[in-house]
Amino acid sequence: MIELTIDGKRVQARKGEHLLAIARREGVEIPTLCHHEAVEPSGACRMCMVEVTRPDWEGWSKLVTACNFPAEEDLIVRTRTDKVMQTRKEILELLIARTPGSQLIAEMAREYGLDHPTLTVGELSEKCILCDICTRVCQNLVTGAISRINRGVEKEVNTPFAEVSDVCIGCLACAKSCPTDAIEFKQVGLERTIWGRTFDLVPCTQCGAPTLPKEQAEWLSERTGMKVEEYFVCVKCKAAQTARTYENIAW
């Protein structure tokens, strides 16, 4: 274990542990957009900027991304200095210019005193901040159906050739992990549409409520060894099943 200082408080951590993880454990709030517990930090959004220094740096300090900066002995971390706040404000100004339609970005911007953004370049319908959570989640945890396409101002998240993907399993992991709700999907009755593909949701074998697409159940089954049919029970019925099982256990 090592000791470092975050906002004046001495805290303990493992050497190399990321600053963001330590701060959150100690109850110090650092804003993030591209951070997701399920995948490795990527330092893409720059919202988690903090100022670090050390006693032997003779007053010199630098800005780093807390999400992927490794902790070291005697590091002094300050999360709300003028420099940090100004940097975050500038980042938000650029983000809001790109995604004027995003409520989350607008709210964060207001917190940093950006009531009247001066720049707008994106369309009102644009919500994607290219934080890469969806593509990282899909590539690392699911089937890798989506990725970043093109570069620079033309960069976007999409399926290959913007065509219907045959590896997508309709799990919604991308849409649900998106911080700005930029990925659209539709679910009506037993149909779910995402990335231009419509999946049939299998009705719950007990009550008929929609469960998940067959493709997703098969994908899960391959990895867990559970039978495909076992996934076709909705959350409510599964809970009821579990409750009954426990009722029958003689304590």
Binding site: G144, S147, P160
Partner: peptide
Amino acid sequence: RETMKTVAEYTGVPLSRVTAVATFYSAFSF
């Protein structure tokens, strides 16, 4: 386009990442 799937299978890289690489570098064109 039709070759991209074969390349993806050969290299073990998901098709989506093959297209990500192919659209990132200006040396490549569809």
